[in-house]
């Protein structure tokens, strides 16, 4: 594998991304929502901690909750644990948006043949496209996480007088699990993009892979699943295995002959 050629692909993809305003805007909407919504939730709990409805909600999740424990504090802590599951949608979704454009977009715009006629190998191409999608995805996740921490601490400070974020679970999650999920989202997008002709179709199909994550969060909110550090670590381990499988599949699907004969 020649590093210069991988760098060339990363350079081209990032240069193109900077000029794609529509895609940049879509990349910012989801992170903004995933930051603003939990901050708003924490604010709602912290701004009126004596609301009797909060105890009703807290008892739904933990019927044995002692009376001397603040329902607002319990719900804030639970919201922060559960929201990490939803936060993982971001590192999956951002690479899906970028990689679908980067791979299926090449076919759609008929730029793939000159690219494949260059000396680049399939592994270099997959590596370059993936890096160009993973780096922004992880960077956006980390910036969003920083904004999330600051926002949560600001809105909860007047009630709790302690900083809640960042905590160990979130730091481990955003530092280790989020990149694994980003790799997963990228792998799915690359594999699907290698099989379909349009970036939009690739995004739609790949987007379906976000649904299980959303489903897990829904089960957490419904009180069926109890999330925590170990729970997220198991998710991370499962995704790591899937990442390896997707990487192998992506390299195999990036066969010149297949791409050329099917899509040009």
């Amino acid at each position: 594998m020649r590093l210069r050629r991988v760098q060339a692909v990363v350079w081209k993809e990032l240069t193109d991304l900077k000029k794609n305003r529509g895609l940049l805007l879509s990349l910012l909407v989801l992170p903004a929502m995933l930051v603003v919504v939990p901050i708003g939730t924490v604010f709602a709990y912290a701004s009126n901690p004596e609301d009797p409805n909060l105890r009703t909600m807290a008892l739904y999740y933990d019927p044995k909750l002692p009376m001397n424990v603040s329902a607002a504090t319990f719900l804030i802590e639970k919201a922060l644990v559960d929201w990490f599951g939803m936060f993982l949608v971001m590192p999956i979704f951002v690479p899906i948006l970028i990689s679908s454009q980067a791979v299926a977009g090449e076919k759609e715009r008929r730029t793939i043949e000159p690219l494949l006629a260059s000396p680049i190998t399939a592994v270099e191409l997959v590596a370059g496209k993936s890096l160009a999608s993973l780096v922004p995805a992880v960077a956006i996740s980390w910036v969003a996480f920083a904004a999330f921490c600051a926002g949560v601490d600001v809105v909860s400070w007047h009630f709790l007088k302690v900083t809640l974020m960042p905590n160990g679970m979130w730091l481990f999650g955003v530092g280790v699990i989020a990149p694994l999920f980003a790799f997963f989202g990228n792998g799915i997008a690359v594999v699907i993009s290698a099989r379909v002709a349009e970036a939009r179709l690739a995004q739609q199909i790949a987007g379906v892979c976000v649904l299980p994550v959303v489903g897990l969060v829904a089960l957490q909110i419904a009180g069926v699943l109890r999330a925590g550090g170990a729970y997220y670590a198991i998710q991370g381990a499962v995704v790591l295995v899937l990442d390896v499988l997707l990487l192998v599949a992506a390299v195999r699907l990036f066969d010149r002959e297949r791409l050329i004969s099917r899509w040009t």
Partner: peptide
């Protein structure tokens, strides 16, 4: 060198960026 039937240029990139990309790919 291959000139494909479709020019296959990256429309958002400038002519210089298009060429520099292939200069880099060819090391």
């Amino acid at each position: 060198g291959l000139l494909t039937e479709q020019p296959g240029l990256y429309d958002r990139l400038t002519a210089e960026e298009n060429l520099r990309f292939f200069i880099k790919l060819n090391e």
